[in-house]
């Protein structure tokens, strides 16, 4: 404790010294006189460059002026340190002691000089920065348990944890609801595979068969009337005859022949139309040929020519 009182005195010193350089030196001397023999060794600091001394003092003053009271400045440094570290253990204090010695070596000051009011400003400055360094180092060195909340002390409280858990829960519920909604929206929506499975191949095969049949029928029909001009009366007659023949031959082999729906339906339809004049509006049944779907179930009985194709095509496709 004796040291600390010294320090308090030293804290008062700078005011006096402010007046002049010389006085400062005198005060130093006085202090020296007061000190015991240990202070004799304090001659060393004098060797410090004057300019540097000035600078140090100035810095010390600035440093101290920020604090509320000068008296407290010197001593509570240790306490501040403790606060900074936040309940630091005794081990840290020991570390601090070790650091003290280190610093002494660096500056060339002894412990006694520090307390002996020789350049107290400098001491305080160095000590202050040191404390901060210590505190910082201890914080850095501290191993924090792996936690979501991190090293925040207040975060360790249960309240925050609960809040976070709640938020997480809410998010989960929301996400699930969204997912469900999306599922309902996407119901039935299927992304096709990027290869052809057997079913698709089968369907393509069926469709290909239909196309081939239609094209063949077209080829057959159009080859027959090649070179004939339907607008010429003579040619039109020939065409009519041929179509009639083709139509009756179709009728004869309906059961055996297999054709695609559209192809067949229309092949049979074509010849029926072909009975009249080539140009549509001249036909008797022009614009009357729309199928009457109202009586769709009576159709097989009444409209024979139109229906044979359909029936046959259906039966044939099943084979």
């Amino acid at each position: 404790m004796a040291e600390e009182t010294h320090m308090a005195e030293a804290a008062r010193e700078p005011r006096k010294r402010k007046i002049g350089k010389k006085k400062g030196s005198k005060a130093k001397k006085k202090a020296k006189m007061l000190q015991s023999a240990e202070s004799i060794r304090a001659m060393k600091p004098k060797k410090i460059d004057k300019k540097m001394q000035k600078l140090y003092r100035k810095r010390a003053r600035d440093y101290n002026s920020e604090d509320e009271s000068e008296q407290d400045n010197a001593t509570p440094l240790g306490n501040n340190e403790d606060e900074l570290i936040g309940g630091s253990s005794s081990g840290e204090e020991a570390e601090k002691g070790g650091d003290h010695s280190e610093r002494n070596v660096d500056n060339g000051f002894s412990d006694d000089e520090e307390h002996g009011e020789i350049l107290p400003g400098i001491m305080r400055f160095t000590e202050g920065s040191n404390a901060f360094r210590l505190a910082f180092r201890s914080i850095i060195k501290k191993t924090v348990p792996e936690d979501v909340l991190g090293p925040v002390l207040s975060g360790q409280k249960k309240l925050v944890a609960e809040k976070l858990a709640e938020e997480e829960n809410e998010r989960k519920v929301k996400g699930e609801a969204k997912k469900e909604k999306q599922l309902v929206i996407e119901k039935g929506h299927v992304k096709p595979a990027n290869y052809l499975d057997s079913h698709e191949k089968f369907l393509i095969g069926v469709a290909t068969k239909g196309v081939v049949k239609l094209f063949n029928a077209v080829n057959k029909a159009q080859n027959a009337q090649k070179g004939l001009n339907p607008s010429k009366f003579k040619d039109a007659k020939v065409i009519k005859k041929r179509r009639k023949e083709a139509f009756f031959s179709e009728l004869g082999k309906t059961s055996s022949r297999g054709a695609s729906a559209s192809a067949k339906a229309h092949t049979s339809k074509g010849p029926v139309d072909g009975e009249g004049p080539a140009w549509a509006p001249l036909q008797d049944n022009y614009m009357l040929t729309n199928s009457k779907l109202k009586d769709w179930d009576k159709m097989p009985d009444t409209v024979v020519g139109d229906d044979i194709g359909r029936v046959s095509e259906d039966s044939s496709d099943d084979d």
């Binding site: 469709a207 496709d317 099943d318």
Partner: peptide, 9 residues
């Protein structure tokens, strides 16, 4: 074009 198959049941 339209192809209907298998409807002839």
């Amino acid at each position: 074009l339209i192809v209907l198959s298998g409807f002839g049941t």
